[in-house]
């Protein structure tokens, strides 16, 4: 196994095994059954920059590395894609960070 990426949407994370030479379309085909949506209804985005990943280019080309987080958005009924939506847990250690900021 070469690498994996973490594909996130709402409260769900898909761990997908892949190779740096895989094209984005290959990743979408792997996701197809898991998310119940065909590849052309999926859009993959780098959450930090908002960059939309292109089907025909590889992971390596677009600097997607091992353990990277990629956001998945799906096509809505009106044919537009939804906004990036990744819910983060508000658990103990982030809560503690937040407290720290108030001291």
């Amino acid at each position: 196994m070469d690498m994996y990426i973490r594909v996130k949407r709402s409260k769900t994370t898909y761990f997908i095994r892949c190779k740096p030479t895989d094209k984005i379309l290959d990743i979408k085909l792997k996701l197809q059954e898991l998310v119940d949506q065909p590849a052309n209804n999926q859009r993959l985005i780098i959450p930090a920059t908002g960059e939309v990943l292109e089907d025909s280019r590889t992971l390596a080309d677009q600097k997607v590395e091992n353990d990277a987080v990629v956001a998945l958005t799906l096509r809505k009924d009106d044919n537009e894609f939804e906004e990036v939506n990744i819910v983060r847990p508000n658990d103990f250690y982030q809560a503690r960070d937040a407290d720290g900021a108030n001291w």
């Binding site: 196994m1 690498m3 973490r6 994370t13 761990f15 847990p89």
Partner: peptide
């Protein structure tokens, strides 16, 4: 918790690698 479970999943894949 979610943070720990994600870390554990990352560990699984690290283990395979």
């Amino acid at each position: 918790s979610t943070t720990i479970l994600e870390k554990i999943c990352q560990y699984f894949y690290w283990h395979l690698q």
